[in-house]
Amino acid sequence: MGNCMETEGVVPLNNITFDPKMINHSIDLYFFPGSPPSRATLMLVKALGVKHNVKTLNLLAGEQMNPEFIKINPMHTVPTINDNGFILWDSHVIMKYLVDQYGKDDSLHPKDAKKGAIVNHRLFFSATVLFPRLQDYCSPVLFGNQQPDSSKAEKFEEALVFLDGFLKNQPWVAGQQLTIADFSIVAIIATAEAVMFNIAKYSNLSEWYHKVKNAMSNYGYEDVNQAGADAFGAMFKNKLK
């Protein structure tokens, strides 16, 4: 699988395939379609060309609490990977591992200290600001029989303002090239749009959003990310009065 030529230029994905000695090697990915971190990880796996088995867990039915899964991940979170006995969870850590282990170069997470620090900054922003604020807005509606809280919506909108600022005068969230930070963040933004946040009103973010959809079109954007976000959005909207 070679570099993907998109309508907006060459996208510097790694697109690695396994060494012939590893032709029968594959990783298990424990996944839930409604989970943005799960979707981000699966798209990256596809982008890298890593052979994989998707093991879907229905979190709504409590399948993450099955004893078999608890043995693998006592925190019972998705995504989780099993790479020939090497178990890892947390999407940000998984994505960094996959690039280090299977990427043909470091373009998706640069080894350069400064460039790599910016990628890490965006990943921490995703993990500690953007996603938690979206969860804080959505979870009471989905699981607490509550209606949307405008103050929580405002907190998430504030995070979108920050993100829009990151994208000023640069094409990708961590600089001049696509990185794992884009995978992480686009899954959250697609989910936010599905629960009716207006992404289009943020000019830099909206431009990036359009571009990243095209860039990831060959890596499951529609059938992995958009489908999962749409399903999440439908559940959310069904709870509205």
Rank of each mutant, 00 (worst) to 15 (best):
L205F: 00
L142I: 08
E158V: 14
E207W: 07
L163K: 04
N204G: 00
N238E: 08
L142V: 05
G175Y: 01
E222L: 08
Q177W: 11
E157A: 13
F131S: 00
Y202I: 10
F162I: 01
F183G: 06
F143S: 03
A229T: 09
S150H: 12
N225I: 07
I188V: 14
A194S: 15
L240A: 02
N198P: 09
L142G: 03
N204E: 01
P140V: 15
P171D: 02
S217Q: 08
S139E: 02
N238S: 05
M196L: 13
F156V: 06
A127Q: 14
G175I: 03
K152G: 14
M235E: 01
A159Q: 09
Y209F: 11
M216H: 11
D149L: 09
D223E: 12
S217L: 03
D182C: 10
F197W: 09
A229E: 04
I199Q: 12
D149Q: 10
N145V: 06
A200Q: 15
H210D: 15
A231P: 00
K152L: 11
E193N: 02
K201R: 14
M216Y: 12
W208F: 09
E157W: 04
P148S: 10
S203W: 04
V141H: 00
S217G: 05
V161A: 10
E158F: 14
F156E: 02
Q146A: 15
P132M: 06
P148Q: 07
E154P: 07
A215C: 13
I185R: 08
M196Y: 09
S150A: 15
A194P: 13
K213E: 13
Y221K: 08
S184C: 08
S217A: 04
Y202S: 03
E158W: 12
E207R: 15
R133M: 13
L178S: 09
R133S: 13
F162S: 03
E154G: 05
W208K: 06
I199P: 12
S203L: 05
K152V: 06
A181Y: 09
D136V: 01
F131Q: 00
F183I: 03
P171V: 01
A153N: 10
M196P: 04
G228H: 09
V224A: 09
Q176A: 07
V195W: 02
Y202P: 04
N145G: 12
A181N: 06
V186R: 05
L240K: 02
Q135H: 13
Y137W: 03
L205E: 01
F183C: 07
G220T: 15
Q177M: 12
F156D: 04
